[in-house]
């Protein structure tokens, strides 16, 4: 048993040290002998045991005595721990690959593969949004929201993603192109819900609402343009008017719509519904019974849409 543990540990240490590589080779030889039911004649286990005991005995004779008497038991214990660690590591790797987090979907706990937590960052709704939400008390779902009032791309696809995003949210801006490419690749539907997580962006919900109300056929061209370029320009009305023009949308009509008190009412109602989903920040993406909070890698969405082997399709 000791050979197996040593082989694994020394193989890892061998990445950094040639002497450990040599020991790892000896351990491997020992392992191969053991698995083929032959005695380990290399003396590796004896050598390592002696070295370990030699170190321990100089610090504590009692500990050395205990180690000597229980060496094999301890080897088994460490093997069990190692096995558990390996299982957890493989699980973490799998979860990271499929959900973007080692600890499961949308977990913000530390993940060694994503140490900065980039896959779970959101622009939070907590303080600045118009309609405050109380996320911890809600389960994320779209049950209380009338989705037909929001712009939908490929409405007849029967397979729909729902994206709550904010033009001004850098994480939304990171995610939007990914979602768009998935929509194009897998020919699925996409419902876009703008939610103003940043105070200066309140008006953008009205803007999106008005474009969709006035010229729904131009909405997606306009939406794509809003997520392109430097987000700092979004605070410039001239720039926005330019984007409207570029998308073929009548800017005057849109601005008039924005100024209309009825729009204010309609959008506020929409935002109340959006808040009822329990989401905590943007981007939040719904797909069937799955929710993705934060900017996930492309593969995470693709796996959700088409399974683990999405790349074969």
């Amino acid at each position: 048993m000791f050979c197996i543990i040593s082989f694994i540990v020394l193989s890892i240490l061998g990445i950094f040290s040639a002497s450990n590589r040599e020991l790892a080779r000896e351990a491997l030889d020992c392992v191969l002998r053991r698995v083929t039911l032959r005695p380990c004649t290399t003396g590796f286990d004896e050598k390592m045991k002696a070295r370990i005991l030699g170190v321990v005995i100089t610090r504590s004779e009692g500990a050395a005595r205990f180690l000597n008497r229980n060496f094999e038991r301890l080897a088994w214990l460490f093997f069990g721990l190692l096995l558990a660690s390996v299982i957890f590591a493989v699980r973490g790797l799998f979860l990271f690959y499929t959900t973007g987090s080692c600890n499961g979907a949308n977990s913000t706990e530390f993940c060694v593969f994503d140490p900065t937590g980039a896959n779970n960052q959101v622009s939070t709704t907590s303080q600045v949004c118009t309609i405050p939400v109380t996320p911890a008390q809600m389960t994320l779902n779209l049950k209380k929201i009338d989705l037909t009032q929001f712009p939908t791309l490929n409405p007849g696809s029967g397979d729909n993603l729902f994206m709550i995003a904010c033009y001004h949210c850098e994480f939304s801006r990171k995610t939007y192109p990914i979602i768009r490419s998935l929509v194009d690749r897998f020919h699925i539907g996409l419902t876009f819900i703008h939610y103003p997580v940043k105070e200066p962006t309140d008006s953008f919900s009205k803007l999106a609402y008005c474009v969709n109300q006035l010229q729904p056929d131009k909405f997606w061209s306009f939406n794509d343009l809003m997520f392109e370029g430097d987000k700092a320009n979004l605070d410039d009305p001239t720039y926005i008017n330019g984007l409207l023009g570029k998308a073929g949308v009548d800017a005057k009509k849109v601005n008039a719509c924005i100024a209309d008190p009825a729009t204010e009412t309609a959008v506020k109602k929409q935002m109340e519904q959006v808040a009822s989903t329990g989401f905590t920040g943007t981007p939040t993406i719904f797909y069937k019974d799955q929710v993705f909070v934060g900017p996930k890698p492309y593969r995470v969405y693709a796996i959700a849409l088409r399974g683990f082997f999405y790349w074969l399709r």
Partner: peptide, 13 residues
């Protein structure tokens, strides 16, 4: 006690 163990421990200690 294996002779190699004694020798290795003496060296290590």
């Amino acid at each position: 006690i294996d002779s190699h163990r004694i020798a290795l421990m003496l060296d290590q200690m």
